[in-house]
Amino acid sequence: MAQTEQQKLQLIQDLEIEMMADMYNRLTSACHKKCIPPHYSDAEIAKGEAVCLDRCVAKFLDIHERIGKKLGQLSMQDEELLKKK
């Protein structure tokens, strides 16, 4: 019994890591698209691009956290509604 509980925990942890990787991939692709114009005269990351990437990642993570809080609130509301019924 204890082992299945542990397996469950492991499964959830794996899932969270997988989803974090998915989020990271989305973040990199979105910020790549927004900050790196598709003409390549220089392989170095330009100063402006670096600043853009920095802000982009900060904003993406900000939004992710904001939406996470919102979803948390909504699911709490849903649970309370379910309890009342």
Binding site: A30, K34, C35, C52, K59, I63, I67, L71
Partner: peptide
């Protein structure tokens, strides 16, 4: 749920952020 969460963040980021003139929203 987690997949939807990621998709939601990604979609709204793409749609709402059109300039990166500041670090804060």
């Amino acid at each position: 749920f987690l997949q939807m969460y990621n998709l939601l963040s990604h979609t709204c980021f793409k749609r709402c952020i059109d300039n990166l003139n500041s670090r804060n929203l």
